[in-house]
Design a protein around this nucleic acid. Structure first.
Lengths: 109, 109
DNA sequence: ACCGCTGACATAGTCTAACTATGGCAGAGG
DNA sequence: CCTCTGCCATAGTTAGACTATGTCAGCGGT
């Protein structure tokens, strides 16, 4: 980790949630959406995003199909599968559980 | 990351905070303390803890000296340095900033 | 007609750090 | 004595986020 921003493991969660919220999206949109909603705190680099999407394809959490953007450009559209939605639920509860525990430790007297 | 528990990067934060709260401690105590306060959610493996402490020594965040435990055993006692306290403050604010951002994303409508 | 900009995807290679597995040693208790 | 537990340590593996780099197509300006 290069001391900047997204903690390993949470990128999946961010992508899954973003897709769940907005349905079909291409990579660029996903990255922009995460960045915007996080008030520019989280910057998803392309070198992180695309490999993550590939891994998610292999794991069966998303499907992809080629299409054309509003600006008439070629793009790959991703969509959650049922397994992806299940994974999202799992990661959400793990995240809450672990962050809650960490918070207890760092707020302990 | 092996799909279980402590997110990379936060172990330093947990150790720093634990030392800040309790002063001088040895490794075993640190691990037990984190585990107990987190209600057994966070389990610091020895293979993670000791390397992390070594790195923290090198970075100058802690000092170490050999001593004897209450149970009459040899142990290395760690203590925060000024640099360690500074690092703790830094990691706390980064943690809050990033977790806040992630929370915004995963709670967005 | 050209040129550069931006959108969009992709991959190779590096690096941090948490893990598994393993080993050692010393005191305590059966 | 012998095992258990406390306590430290390291070698090797792995995931995954990064940097750097490359591609290609459409658009706008000059």
């Amino acid at each position: 980790m290069h001391r900047d921003e997204i903690p390993p493991g949470t990128l999946y969660l961010l992508i899954l949630k973003t897709l769940a919220r907005s349905g079909e999206m291409h990579g660029y949109e996903i990255a922009n959406s995460i960045q915007r909603i996080s008030d520019d705190v989280l910057q998803v680099e392309e070198g992180s995003l695309y490999p993550a999407l590939q891994r998610m394809l292999i794991k069966g959490w998303v499907t992809a199909k080629w299409g054309t953007t509003a600006g008439n450009r070629r793009a790959r559209y991703y969509e959650l599968t049922a397994a992806g939605r299940k994974q999202l639920a799992l990661e959400m509860s793990q995240f809450e559980r672990v962050i809650g525990a960490i918070t207890r430790v760092i707020e302990a007297v």
